[in-house]
């Protein structure tokens, strides 16, 4: 049953709360409150995953990057066994591992970050099904988050972190206890999801493939404005195919494209090496031009 000194991980993963153990009876959480000081703002890039998790990247002891969910539902920094091994983080007698350096993308450094080394079932399930669209290596929870004042703004591609002069008390009572009771029988889901992911041919980390490169710069890309070539780069596939500045793109692969956004959306499906058939309007004359796309971002 519930072990008094067990571990409570409310891994907010997919709203799922993994009680990896039980609740501890610890002292007051308002341990030490120093009143001075808030550090400078550090902008930390993040991505919002398909599963609507706010994910930041971090290097541990110079290794990585690894992907972490910002998770107030997790009482600590959780890293998987694989991450711990790769970054040389060892579990101590107290059940914690210490990251000598934990550096978030954007340059934020968390000194001596303490971590739990575990793979909650939500992580296993999510990665098994590729639900996030990117492999998740752990959660950044309370013991790290509480050292910062963090601003989330989903209209920006960065979070703002400021160090606060307050040392959160360790959610003590958290002790590794592998055999303590699980999150109410939910552990099976991890394996189940992994199995389904296999059937669906999903991977935690899909390989990203870029749209192909033609070498054209468009004039204003706006709804309702026809896509007009502003620049055709020298020796580019577009130039070699005969595209000229001022050409208006009317069709891509036989589909009418009303404006710049439509052209870009259509193009997004074609990769390097593929031929892209365009119909352009050059001073009232309609021309068909095929561009062999190359690689390049």
């Amino acid at each position: 049953m519930l072990n008094k000194r067990g571990i409570l991980a409310l891994g907010g993963f997919l709203a799922s709360l993994a009680v990896l153990g039980a609740i501890a009876s610890a002292g007051s959480i308002r341990a030490r409150e120093a009143l001075v000081g808030i550090g400078p703002a550090v902008e930390v890039p993040y991505r919002l995953t398909l599963s609507k998790h706010v994910v930041v990247r971090a290097r541990i002891n110079g290794k990585g990057p690894f992907n972490f969910v910002l998770d107030t539902g997790a009482p600590a920094l959780f890293i998987t066994e694989q991450v711990a091994e790769r970054s040389g983080v060892k579990q101590g007698d107290d059940g914690w591992g210490v990251c000598d350096t934990l550096e978030l993308e954007g340059g934020l450094k968390v000194p001596k970050a303490k971590a739990r080394i575990a793979t909650p079932f939500q992580l296993e399930g999510m990665n098994g099904m590729g639900l996030a669209g990117v492999e998740i290596h752990g959660m950044l929870g309370y013991n790290i988050l509480a050292q910062y004042r963090i601003t989330f703004d989903m209209t920006s591609d960065r979070l703002v972190w400021r160090k606060i002069d307050w040392i959160p008390k360790s959610p003590f009572g958290i002790v590794a206890k592998e055999d303590s009771s699980g999150p109410g029988g939910l552990e099976i889901i991890g394996g189940l999801m992994k199995g389904l992911g296999g059937i669906l041919g999903r991977k935690a980390n899909p390989t990203l493939v870029a749209r192909g490169y033609a070498g054209v710069v468009l004039d204003e890309v706006a709804e309702g404005k026809p896509a007009k070539l502003k620049v055709v780069l020298p020796a580019s596939p577009a130039e070699m195919a005969g595209l000229k500045v001022g050409d208006l793109i009317r069709e891509v692969e036989g589909a009418t494209v009303a404006d710049g956004p439509a052209v870009l959306a259509k193009l997004a499906q074609f990769k390097a090496g593929q031929d892209l058939k365009l119909k352009v309007d050059r001073q009232g004359q309609s021309l068909e031009i095929t561009v062999r796309l190359e690689g390049g971002i």
């Binding site: 398909l50 599963s51 099904m129 590729g130 639900l131 669209g133 669906l200 041919g201 999903r202 991977k203 899909p206 390989t207 990203l208 493939v209 870029a210 749209r211 490169y213 070498g215 710069v217 780069l233 870009l264 193009l267 997004a268 499906q269 990769k271 190359e294 690689g295 390049g296 971002i297």
Partner: peptide, 29 residues
């Protein structure tokens, strides 16, 4: 999620996903 799970080729199924930059740089990685 459903779109992704039932997704077409190039949308996370079959292990790869097509991605478009928000703007062009001209870098070949």
């Amino acid at each position: 999620m459903i779109k992704s799970l039932l997704g077409t080729e190039g949308n996370g199924r079959d292990g790869y996903k097509m991605v478009s930059p928000g703007a062009m740089l001209g870098i070949v990685a």
